[in-house]
């Protein structure tokens, strides 16, 4: 068996990419964020519009709307969260596997919005950690896509290896 191929081989140049495992994992992750569409109110319609033909969320790898929390990565809270719904939202969030993210879509989910009343939770961030807030009542589908890109940026900077230390700090990379 010939073992000299380990060194430089001009035949496979361009077909092999060297990268760090962290970067590779974030690249995989950020291009297939499956949403859990928590369509609660009006924003849910814009969420549907973002998924439908014109705005086509699948360009960002997020067309796989999973109504089962166990199969999803990002929860898009679209709409007014009432106190009656709050525990259910929280329960669904807890059923999502790690790593998981949350987008608060619209004024109601971000802050309670125009519903300052006895029945409305004043922002979903009181019960969940939110990664991206989208303004608007409701936000346009473009705004949701922008939020998705923001989240992709965030994911690409996250560290995924167990001890959460950059490779540089662990002395594995020289330069």
């Amino acid at each position: 068996m010939n073992t000299t191929e380990i060194g430089y081989n001009s035949k496979i140049e361009g077909n092999v990419v060297h990268t760090r495992i962290d970067n590779a994992v974030s690249w995989f992750r950020k291009n297939s964020i499956w949403p859990m569409p928590m369509g609660l109110a009006c924003c849910g319609i814009e969420l549907m519009a973002a998924g439908a033909s014109r705005y086509d969320i699948s360009r960002f790898g997020s067309e796989v709307m999973r109504f089962s929390p166990r199969q999803s990565d990002v929860m898009i809270v679209a709409g007014t969260v009432t106190y009656k719904m709050a525990i259910a939202v929280r329960r669904i969030y807890e059923q999502m596997p790690e790593p998981k993210w949350v987008i608060a879509m619209g004024a109601c989910a971000s802050s309670g919005g125009m519903y300052r009343s006895y029945a409305t939770l004043q922002g979903v961030d009181r019960i969940l950690p939110v990664d991206v807030y989208v303004s608007g009542c409701p936000p346009r589908p473009e705004a949701l896509l922008e939020a998705l890109m923001k989240l992709q940026d965030k994911i690409s900077k996250e560290l995924h290896i167990k001890d959460k230390k950059p490779a540089r700090d662990r002395g594995l990379v020289l330069s």
Partner: peptide, 9 residues
């Protein structure tokens, strides 16, 4: 386990 409410600002 059911619900909570808080006064709204």
């Amino acid at each position: 386990d059911v619900a909570f409410t808080d006064p709204v600002p």
